[in-house]
Computed example of a mutant assay.
Amino acid sequence: MIRASLVSFLALTALSACGHAPPDQVNDACLILEDNRSWWRALQRTEERWGVPAGVQLAILKRESSFNAHARPARRRLLGIIPGRRPSSAYGYAQALDETWDWYRRDTGRRGADRDDFSDAVDFVGWYASKSRQLSGIQPNQPRELYLSYHEGHGGYNRGTYRRHSWLMRAADQVASDAQRYENQISRCERRLSRRFGLF
């Protein structure tokens, strides 16, 4: 009986380590963070380390994965029914590609970072924003431009490849709108969220 309970506990612990279930709704930052309290501290750490506002981090993850730890691009279909290859290696909260994630881990020394771990994913977003500042002159509080460089890569952003994709321009505008809304919401509940961590 004890062994069975221990196995159940370890299984639940492993599942929780791999990421929370996606929030029931994705439009209210206060509700998202009240239901996932460890996320708030992770957002704060990233803002302190990389200077990217919490609302911007959330807006990028919302666009990329809707906060699904195990999100992947849909498989292409052969003849409309046979599952084929996925269009890219994007995975996790931040939809980071294999090679970009490897670059992040080498550059930061975070060899054990996982794409399905929220804390690692937001740190990746912050790190990528710092690269966007160095390589493309984008500031951490420019969510539209950050998202365009996030999607197109720094070389593509610098060449303006995003201008060829009206859907991407609309997506970047939505990220900017979401970031502003999240920031406004967080400003109203920040003290309450921080109090739960004993910060105030």
Rank of each mutant, 00 (worst) to 15 (best):
S136W: 14
L146T: 05
S187F: 00
R195P: 11
Y182G: 07
E34R: 02
N36R: 04
R63K: 15
S136M: 11
Y104M: 15
L148E: 01
S149M: 06
R37S: 12
S166R: 09
D98A: 10
R63Y: 11
W103R: 15
P83W: 15
D107A: 15
N36S: 03
N158L: 06
H165A: 06
G160L: 10
R85G: 15
D35W: 00
R110L: 15
R3H: 02
G55M: 00
R191V: 05
A129Y: 08
F124M: 09
C189A: 02
A171N: 05
A71Y: 04
L10R: 01
D178R: 00
I2V: 10
A14V: 09
V125L: 10
Q139I: 03
Y93R: 13
D35A: 02
R77Y: 15
G55T: 00
L78T: 10
A21L: 04
W101S: 12
L97G: 13
E190L: 01
G109Y: 13
I2A: 08
L58A: 02
S66Y: 10
R110H: 14
G55D: 00
R144E: 07
S119Y: 01
L78P: 15
H70I: 11
D35T: 01
P140H: 01
L146Q: 07
A176F: 07
L135V: 06
G55C: 00
R105F: 14
W101I: 13
R63F: 12
P22G: 04
V175L: 09
P83V: 12
F200H: 12
K131R: 13
P87R: 06
A21C: 02
R163P: 09
T13N: 04
S38Q: 07
A14L: 11
A29K: 00
Y128E: 09
G19S: 02
R110A: 13
L135Q: 09
A96N: 12
L199Q: 04
L58P: 09
D114W: 14
H165E: 03
F9I: 05
L12E: 07
T100N: 14
N36C: 03
D98K: 14
R188D: 00
Y91P: 04
S177L: 06
G112N: 14
V26K: 07
G156T: 05
S16T: 05
D24R: 01
A4T: 04
L12G: 04
A17H: 06
W39Y: 11
E99Q: 15
R191Y: 01
